[in-house]
Each structure stands twice: as C-alpha cells, then as structure tokens.
Amino acid sequence: MASNQPYLTFHDGRRIPQLGLGTWKLTGEATVPAIKAAVETGYRAIDTAYIYGNETEVGQGIAQCGVPREELFITTKLWNNRHHREDAKQALQESLDRLQLDYVDLFMIHWPVPQENHYLDAWEALIQLRDDGRAKSIGVCNFQLEHLQQLLDKTGVLPVVNQIELHPYLQQTALCAYHDDHGILTQAWSPLGQGQILQDPVILEIAHQTQVSPAQVVLRWHMQKGHIAIPKSAHPERIRENFNIWNLLLDDGAMQRIAGLDSETGRIGPDPDRFHVMKG
C-alpha cells in the first residue's frame, strides 16, 4: 500500500507523518513483524524510546522493512536519569547504536522531571545534537506550559513538537493553544485512551453512523484537530485498520460531540508535574 497520509511541517522546516506507529509495550519477537506490517501498510513514522527496551528490535525492523532510511521518520527519547548535558549526548549515541542508525529524525526529552530541574541542561544538549546532525529535529514529551516557557526564556529555542497524553477524555485545550501560538506541533500518546475511549457511547454511536470502527473515529478526530498520533498495535489487522482513515470525514456535529467528552479527571497516565521515575 502506498503511503498516502498527510505530513505536518515543523517550525524548523522538516516534516513528520501525521500518523505513526507507537511501540510502547511492543517488545520481543512481536516488534519486527509489527514494524514490517506497518511500513507495508503505509506508515512511515516509528516512535520508540530508551525506556521501552525495544530499540534494538525497532532497528531490526527498520533494516528489514524494505523502505529506504530516508523515507522513514524515526523518533527516540531521552530517559529521566540522563538529563545532564554530556550524559544526554552519550545517551543518544547509545540509542543510535542500538537502532543501528547514524541519526534519528526526532530526539525528545521524555519527561521534564521538574523535581530534579535538569531539563534545561538536557534541552541545551539536544540543541547541540541537532546542530551536529545526530538528531535532525528536537522535541519534548509531557512538558507543561511553564516548562515550555522556561525553554523559550532561557535558550530562545522551542521544541518542534510536544508529545503529550491526549485523547477525547483529556483534550488539554490550554496547552494545545500554547502550542498553536508558538508553532509547536501537538503529538498524542495513548491517542485511543489505552482503549477506554473505545467503549464510550458517543464514540460507539458515531462509529455506527459512519460505519467504521471506534478506533478509526478517534484517530480521525485527532487528524482533524491537527494532532500527530502514534497508536500502538502488534496486530497487522489493527495496524491496517488504524491507518485506513483517510477517506473518513467527521462532520461538525460529531466533532462537537467528541469535544464534549473532555474531563478534568480524564488523565490515565502520570501527572507530568509529579512523575519522578529515574531508574531505567
């Protein structure tokens, strides 16, 4: 299948596919077949991280997928215990070695860990890694508005993207507005709410009306909102289903109904202001 999906443009001029394959909890023998199935389906973006423990297998999948490296968009992330400047640089080289790549398209700080307050050091290291070409673009994950503002105030350099928990139950309207105002793209992890949203009556009704799956409804909502999404699956049929959303269009009524699902208690993952896991 040809890769017919849209791309979004970073403020540094580079582009990212709007829909990618997430690999959190994708480990062992399942990793390579999932990547090969995704690339065959049309995905060109693969998202991994040191802490996922699968960079070696992701690299094997990239090597075996049959698509030239320059057509793929590969992301990995810096873990919380490597925020010191020289340590961050070494961490990327270790990730590149596991991936068997000369560069990644996007290198990200995985969590701000504000209690340690070293994310600014890590960001300065990422700027240097971008300048020397080992990371083509640099971004962050799970940064709150005040963390992003600190990067801007201290370095003048904003991330091209902030990858955050984002799904219909947690729409993060204020943070997304800050992104829009500052040219930062919004990327959703757990875009399907770890499956919880797929049983919501509103999503089920829209899926029935449009004759698609609940996952396709939610992923199409992300696309129409301008988000980047990285759903994870190890199953080829679901990988294909998640990608088959380009002929679907949600009308204004459906979009408004999904907007009404936002909740103050919608967060499923950790709170970025408190998350403080250091061991890798």
Score class of each variant (00 low, 15 high):
residue 1 M to P: 09
residue 2 A to M: 12
residue 3 S to W: 12
residue 4 N to Y: 02
residue 5 Q to I: 12
residue 5 Q to T: 04
residue 5 Q to W: 11
residue 11 H to A: 14
residue 12 D to N: 15
residue 15 R to H: 15
residue 20 G to M: 05
residue 20 G to E: 05
residue 24 W to I: 00
residue 30 A to V: 02
residue 33 P to F: 09
residue 35 I to K: 04
residue 38 A to G: 11
residue 42 G to Q: 10
residue 43 Y to C: 05
residue 43 Y to M: 07
residue 43 Y to R: 09
residue 43 Y to V: 08
residue 45 A to K: 06
residue 45 A to I: 01
residue 46 I to C: 00
residue 50 Y to K: 05
residue 56 T to M: 04
residue 59 G to N: 03
residue 59 G to Y: 03
residue 62 I to E: 00
residue 65 C to A: 15
residue 65 C to P: 07
residue 67 V to C: 09
residue 68 P to I: 02
residue 70 E to S: 13
residue 72 L to M: 07
residue 74 I to P: 00
residue 75 T to A: 05
residue 77 K to Q: 03
residue 78 L to A: 11
residue 88 A to T: 04
residue 88 A to F: 05
residue 95 S to Y: 01
residue 98 R to D: 05
residue 101 L to D: 02
residue 106 L to V: 10
residue 113 V to Y: 10
residue 113 V to A: 11
residue 116 E to P: 04
residue 117 N to R: 13
residue 117 N to Q: 14
residue 118 H to M: 15
residue 119 Y to W: 15
residue 120 L to T: 14
residue 122 A to T: 08
residue 123 W to R: 08
residue 126 L to N: 12
residue 126 L to K: 13
residue 126 L to S: 12
residue 128 Q to M: 08
residue 131 D to N: 14
residue 132 D to T: 08
residue 134 R to H: 05
residue 136 K to N: 11
residue 136 K to I: 14
residue 137 S to Y: 10
residue 138 I to N: 13
residue 139 G to S: 11
residue 145 L to V: 06
residue 147 H to I: 02
residue 153 D to H: 08
residue 153 D to N: 14
residue 155 T to L: 13
residue 159 P to R: 10
residue 160 V to R: 11
residue 163 Q to E: 13
residue 165 E to M: 01
residue 171 Q to W: 00
residue 173 T to G: 00
residue 174 A to M: 02
residue 180 D to A: 15
residue 190 S to D: 03
residue 190 S to Y: 05
residue 195 G to T: 09
residue 199 Q to S: 14
residue 200 D to M: 11
residue 200 D to G: 08
residue 203 I to D: 06
residue 206 I to W: 12
residue 210 T to F: 10
residue 214 P to Y: 06
residue 215 A to K: 09
residue 215 A to C: 06
residue 217 V to N: 07
residue 219 L to H: 05
residue 222 H to N: 06
residue 223 M to P: 01
residue 224 Q to S: 09
residue 228 I to M: 13
residue 232 K to Q: 07
residue 237 E to Y: 11
residue 240 R to T: 13
residue 241 E to M: 11
residue 243 F to Y: 15
residue 243 F to Q: 06
residue 246 W to V: 01
residue 249 L to F: 12
residue 249 L to C: 14
residue 251 D to Y: 05
residue 251 D to K: 09
residue 253 G to Q: 13
residue 257 R to P: 07
residue 261 L to V: 08
residue 264 E to L: 06
residue 268 I to Y: 02
residue 269 G to Q: 03
residue 269 G to W: 03
residue 270 P to Q: 03
residue 271 D to H: 02
residue 271 D to C: 01
residue 273 D to L: 03
residue 273 D to F: 00
residue 277 V to D: 10
residue 278 M to Q: 11
residue 279 K to G: 08
residue 280 G to D: 14
residue 280 G to Y: 12
